[in-house]
Simulated assay, not measured.
Amino acid sequence: MQNMIKNNYLLLILILLISSCNKKFDTQEEMNIYISEEDNGYHYKKTVADVDFVLQYRPTDLLVKQELGDNTDPAKVEKFRKHYSQYLYFNLSMSKNNQELLNGVAQDKAKFGQMVNELAFGMEEKLHVYTPTKDTLALADFIYPRMYGMSNSTSIMIVYPRDSKYMKQEYLNFVIEDLGLDTGDIKFKLNTKALTNEPQLRF
Rank of each mutant, 00 (worst) to 15 (best):
Q2F: 14
Q2V: 09
I5S: 05
L14A: 14
L16A: 03
K24Y: 02
F25M: 09
T27D: 00
Q28I: 15
E30G: 03
M31E: 08
I33V: 13
S36L: 10
D39E: 14
K45W: 15
V51L: 12
P59E: 12
L63A: 11
L63Y: 06
Q66I: 09
L68T: 14
N71K: 12
D73Y: 14
H83W: 09
Y87L: 14
Y89R: 09
F90W: 04
N91P: 11
L92R: 00
M94P: 08
M94I: 12
K96W: 05
N97W: 07
E100N: 03
G113S: 15
Q114S: 12
M115S: 10
M115R: 04
E124Q: 05
E125I: 06
K126S: 02
Y130K: 05
P132M: 10
P132A: 12
L137H: 02
A138V: 08
D141F: 13
F142W: 03
I143N: 15
I143G: 07
M150S: 14
S153A: 04
I156V: 13
I158K: 07
V159W: 01
Y160V: 05
P161Q: 08
P161A: 11
S164R: 01
Y166N: 03
Y166L: 03
M167L: 07
L172K: 03
I176A: 04
E177D: 14
D178H: 01
L179M: 09
L179V: 00
D182L: 09
G184L: 05
D185M: 02
D185S: 08
F188I: 12
L195K: 01
N197L: 08
E198N: 08
E198T: 05
L201F: 14
R202Q: 09
F203L: 01
